[in-house]
Simulated scan of single mutants.
Amino acid sequence: MSLMERRLIRETSFGLTSKLWQISWLYVLLLCALASVGYVALYSAAGGSSEPYAARHMLRFAFGLTLMLCIALVDIRFIARLSWPAYAGGVILLLLVMKMGHVGKGAQRWIDIGGMLWQPSELMKLVLVLALASWFHKASWERMGNPLFLIPPAVAVLVPVGLILKEPNLGTAVITAVVGFVVFLGAGVRWWKVALLVALVALVAPIAYDHLHDYQRARITTFLNPESDPLGAGYNIIQSRIALGSGGMWGKGFLQGTQGHLNFLPEKQTDFIFTMLAEEFGLVGGLALLGLLCLIILGGMFIGLRCRHQYGRLVALGISTNFFMYVFVNVAMVMGAIPVGGVPLPLVSHGGSAMIMVMIGFGLLMSVHVHRDVEFSDGRDEI
């Protein structure tokens, strides 16, 4: 019997039952709690009805949870081998969006698959993490210090960022870039190299601003001075601030939010779901939700710290950073701290494709946890 055959037999003995016990069910419980908060918020957004948002939200979460658990059982080494093919598939989908994507609200970001609109840019963030983790897996300090070694992963980040900017989707492009550079840092790339790149981005920012679409420049102008167009571009953020302030310490009560239920608050079931919750449950409710989100983020980081192999650590770091960026951009946006970018609050906002992609990410994270002690035989060559 060959060495490979004996190895496969040994790995197969690590059966599904053992893997199910290895899943962090406490982490799964946190995700269920967050989805339940989303159900309550969407029930309120519909005026006290489970239709059309809340019931679909929970059905999608149930499907996403099942998908997450299935991915968690897949050997992380098998996922590692698929990292670059998955990345190539993601780039192909982005190119297809440019050629035959669905156009909505002035942007061409979606593609129809199975009768449902999907954003390949959401999938791209996940497969980018896998590809970068595969590249940096067990890379020595000498190779990390070689600029030539860093060119392929840098290009791997810039290609999807450029394609996403063409859709146009500035918010997702920025998140994709941040996730990529965080993985760079986690892999051991020296800070000064990342700082040099950030400085370069700052230098070209004025040129990039001149090439933004009109609505993107309007968002930046509105962010700096919302009152300059209170009934137009500044309306959303002004109403969001009013709703946040009117909630006070304890809120107006469930189903009692005036800004949301009198339809002053725009997109209350998607982008501004946090504002509606804060109006009804106040500062205390908002902080409680942020606390739950922080537990999920820190839990993902802890899973990475417990992993024995570099590939899993980098995947956990990238997935956790992606989730953090969702939360940061959405909450900062509704507070007026950054320009409005159309980023949902994960597992709380209404939306199917975004939730499924988030749950796929958590499935990858859980696979890292389940297979945290496995061994990669010879580094990147195995991948």
Rank of each mutant, 00 (worst) to 15 (best):
M116T: 13
D229M: 10
V315K: 09
A131R: 00
L283H: 06
L20I: 15
T270F: 04
I297H: 05
V129D: 01
M98A: 15
L59I: 07
L290F: 09
A133K: 08
A62F: 14
Y326P: 09
S377W: 03
P152G: 06
Q239D: 07
T258P: 04
F324Y: 10
H309S: 10
R77D: 13
W25K: 10
L364T: 07
A154Y: 10
V182C: 15
L59P: 00
D381C: 09
A173N: 09
M276Y: 14
K99E: 13
Y43C: 06
H213E: 02
H261F: 03
G363N: 01
F14L: 13
L364N: 14
R380S: 15
L196T: 04
L314P: 04
A35N: 05
V368M: 13
A156G: 06
Y39C: 01
I383V: 12
Q310F: 03
I360Q: 01
R6F: 00
L3N: 11
W191Q: 08
T222L: 10
A72S: 11
G101W: 00
L163K: 12
A139I: 10
G251R: 03
A195W: 13
L59Q: 13
A80C: 08
L212T: 04
L212M: 15
L59S: 02
S83T: 10
I296A: 13
A45D: 06
A80S: 13
G90K: 00
F362P: 05
A337N: 10
L65R: 03
D271W: 07
G352I: 00
I356Y: 04
P85M: 11
L128D: 03
H350Q: 07
A133N: 08
Q310S: 13
D214C: 04
P52R: 04
W250F: 11
G145N: 15
T321L: 00
Q108F: 00
V358N: 12
V348F: 02
N263I: 02
I296C: 10
W84Y: 15
E167Q: 15
R217P: 09
I297F: 15
L65E: 08
L364Y: 07
L73H: 12
M68W: 07
E382V: 06
A205V: 14
Q239K: 05
W21V: 08
I92W: 14
S349V: 07
F324T: 11
R190L: 10
T176F: 00
L8Q: 12
A62C: 12
E267V: 02
D210R: 14
I23W: 00
S13F: 13
